[in-house]
């Protein structure tokens, strides 16, 4: 891991992967701040981690399963309480498929 200077093209690619669309001014500001942060993060390469098992979580936990029983759920009007757009009992979204389907 060496000093990491991102290009504008890199930043646009990361934005696309992140489902974000920053404007040109924001892209340049992100390029500069992300490059600087990655430069600081490079310090991680100074730590000897040979043979160390990665630790994703502080607790040694395994998945806990509930009993397979139905319980109370939110009423549909509560589920739709915050919907930006709805039609009857459904969330409205932009058309995903072309006419005739795909």
């Amino acid at each position: 891991m060496s000093e990491q200077d991102l290009s504008i093209k890199d930043v646009r690619h990361i934005a696309k992967l992140s489902r974000l669309a920053p404007d040109d001014a924001a892209i340049e500001s992100l390029r500069s701040s992300l490059s600087s942060i990655l430069g600081h993060i490079a310090k991680l390469s100074t730590v000897d981690v040979a043979g160390v098992e990665p630790m994703a979580h502080p607790l040694a936990i395994s998945n806990r399963l509930d009993a397979d029983e139905s319980g109370a759920t939110l009423p549909i009007e509560m589920v739709l309480l915050n919907a930006p757009a709805k039609v009857d009992r459904f969330l409205a979204v932009p058309k995903v498929l072309d006419e005739g389907g795909a």
Binding site: A15, S18, L34, I37, L38, L44, S45, V49, V52
Partner: peptide, 26 residues
Amino acid sequence: IMLGTYVLSSGYYDAYYNRALQVRRR
């Protein structure tokens, strides 16, 4: 969000995310 997406992205995952998890255990 963009920093997180970058350190998890293909080609950088091992150098950043996995290494950070190893340092975490240490």
